[in-house]
Simulated assay, not measured.
Amino acid sequence: MKDWVGVGEAYSASYAALCAGTFPLLQAALGAAHGRTLLDVGSGDGTLADAWATAGWMVTACEPEPSMRAVSSARHPRVRVLDGALPGLPFADGSFDVVIANFVLNHVATPRTAAAELRRVARSAVAATTWTLSPSWLWAEVTRRAVLAPLAGQRLPESEDFERTAEGFEGMLRDAGWRGVGVVEHTWTWTVAPDVLWASVEGGVAGAGALYAALDTEERQRFRRAFDEVVDERLVDGVLPLEHRAAIASCSLL
């Protein structure tokens, strides 16, 4: 749903590390590679795809944003990255043993249709994640202190939307045809330097970056002052310990 055009470098230098925090639980859910093939849909800068390759999987990455593919190819050259997007992936039914989508279904316009598409191209298992406590909580606090209107997100049609909880995510996936889906909730703390977070804003990453890009000069100054206030209150030994939480779903097709 958010516009990610041109943010590959900024995303890779910031939120890529946060989003990779789901890898241990995804790996536990899917088991050892044993030479199996894996498709990483919405692979971003390739951080997670490269982690799967390191774990022994035969990985194909699929990412629609050119700047993300460029960063992925430069930093993770052993991972083949293709142009493709949900809900119409350019693969035949059952093309890959396992298909994953890490923090993708919370961005697409048709989550149920997209989830069904993930299942279509998977042969033995499919897995996906979504935020239940996303990075937006921090930026909502900054926006409030800056006395700015929050970015108005585009609402999904009722037929496609889902409650952003583990239960809501599971229900949406069941509606999309995932049978025997299991969902666990994972909480972890991302420790990040303030300048990394601020670079993500100036780089246009996610909702905070889109909001900042739309502000005038005076509003940007207020936003920066509010950000510095929040940082001063939360800083521990030079970094920000920020709690995040995600629902991690997996489903065996065998």
Rank of each mutant, 00 (worst) to 15 (best):
R164P: 06
A61M: 15
E185F: 09
A20E: 13
F91S: 04
V71M: 06
R234S: 09
P77M: 01
W178D: 02
W188H: 13
R144W: 03
G35V: 06
T189I: 13
A109P: 10
V108T: 08
C251E: 06
R123E: 10
D195K: 11
T130D: 04
G204K: 05
G203K: 14
W52L: 09
P150E: 09
T47W: 08
S136I: 11
L86G: 03
P87A: 09
P150Q: 12
M1C: 05
G44F: 03
L18I: 08
H34A: 12
V126N: 06
A206Q: 01
G94P: 05
A115R: 02
L86Q: 01
S14D: 05
Q27T: 11
A13G: 15
D228I: 03
W198E: 06
H107S: 11
K2E: 10
A114F: 03
F223E: 11
W188E: 13
A17Q: 12
R78V: 15
H34R: 14
E9M: 03
L118V: 05
L211R: 10
W198R: 10
A115G: 05
D175H: 07
V79D: 07
L133W: 08
V41N: 02
R225I: 13
R174F: 04
W190H: 14
L253M: 09
I100C: 09
F169M: 10
A210H: 01
A214H: 13
G168N: 06
G56W: 05
A149E: 14
V99S: 06
L86N: 01
V184D: 13
P157L: 04
V41E: 01
R245V: 12
G153N: 08
E163G: 10
L156R: 14
T165W: 03
R245T: 15
S250I: 12
S43M: 12
Y212W: 14
V71D: 03
A146M: 04
A166G: 15
I100T: 15
A61H: 13
L242F: 02
A109T: 14
A51V: 11
V5F: 12
C251H: 10
T113M: 05
E229R: 12
V184F: 08
F91Y: 07
W188D: 13
E160T: 12
P64H: 05
R144D: 03
E229K: 10
S73G: 07
E141H: 06
